[in-house]
């Protein structure tokens, strides 16, 4: 069998026509912009987790996904073992507690999602097809946001399942759980917009990774320090406002405002005005990063 295959291959190579049945035209269906955008979305989402790519592309995202759900599984085990009356970790607190994991995930995968096409100059081949720059941005943004949502929601689902197994109040847990899903969707959109925007500004992947991790970790560290100091000095209000200046604390303040959950920072948004401001700023950053990403690709597609 191997020998006949070898013969076949070598003769195919030699003449180039051994299996040539001539050129066949394609008469089948062709999807329009919407179908193409959806195909690019699925391709991008799979790509974030390294699916359909080389084995080594899967190590980072799959490893991080494991780190994301492992603590949740341990918490659930402990909770059931102890017969806890309340969840050990609030659904809305989990993402903040393990925030380093989604931050690294974003830093590693956002450049993979957008800067490849920039670095290898592949975009002209996309834009010479029916797809427009806006479709491209929509597909990439939705892909990254969905991937982050899966990453952030998976442990929340595990915590919820654990709570139900632990026979906690069904209605109360379900309500909290659903709110937490909406909250992580907002967080996914926030992180995705920021990450893709930064990554789209440089064709160099390493630079994108470094810039994203620096922004997320750096801003959180500075804001936390400022909050700690101002809180100690007795200015709870100032500590609350400081939360606006890092994506994670901004998100935390917004979910406090929207869902009435406890803040995971020393001080939540100050007063009603503070709450409104946090929500507005969160939505503005999501919309703004998306708009800037669109502008970026409008420029790239015309160059």
């Amino acid at each position: 069998m191997p020998s006949s295959e070898a013969v076949n291959q070598s003769s195919a190579r030699g003449t180039g026509v051994i299996h040539d049945i001539g050129y066949r035209h394609y008469e089948g269906p062709r999807g329009g912009r919407r179908q193409i955008t959806r195909a690019l979305y699925v391709h991008s989402l799979r790509g974030v987790f390294g699916l359909g790519r080389a084995a080594k592309s899967k190590i980072m995202p799959m490893g991080l996904a494991t780190f994301m759900v492992l603590p949740a599984a341990i918490i659930v085990a402990v909770m059931i073992f102890m017969g806890a009356e309340e969840p050990l970790v609030a659904y809305t607190s989990y993402a903040i507690i393990v925030q380093a994991v989604p931050a690294i995930f974003l830093a590693a995968q956002a450049p993979q999602t957008v800067s490849r096409d920039l670095r290898f100059h592949s975009l002209p081949m996309y834009f010479s097809r029916p797809l427009t720059d806006r479709d491209y941005v929509a597909a990439k943004w939705a892909g990254m946001t969905s991937a982050l949502f899966i990453l952030l929601a998976a442990p929340v689902v595990i915590l919820y399942a654990g709570a139900l197994l632990g026979k906690l109040d069904f209605m109360e847990q379900t309500g909290d759980f659903l709110l937490a899903l909406v909250a992580v969707l907002l967080l996914a959109a926030l992180l995705s917009g920021i990450g893709l925007l930064i990554a789209s500004l440089t064709p160099r992947r390493g630079l994108g990774v470094a810039a994203i991790i620096t922004l997320l970790a750096g801003s959180y560290t500075v804001v936390s320090a400022v909050q700690g100091i101002t809180y100690e000095l007795g200015s709870e209000k100032l500590a609350g406002w400081a939360g606006l200046f890092s994506p994670m604390t901004l998100f935390d303040g917004a979910q406090v405002a929207l869902f009435g959950v406890d803040s995971n920072t020393p001080a939540g948004p100050p007063g009603t005005i503070g709450k409104v401001v946090f929500v507005v700023v969160l939505l503005a950053v999501i919309a703004g990063s998306y708009a800037l990403l669109s502008l970026r690709y409008k420029k790239v597609s015309h160059s």
Partner: peptide, 10 residues
């Protein structure tokens, strides 16, 4: 194949 998908082929 990816580029074929980007042209709308199933």
């Amino acid at each position: 194949m990816h580029m074929a998908r980007m042209s709308g082929l199933p």
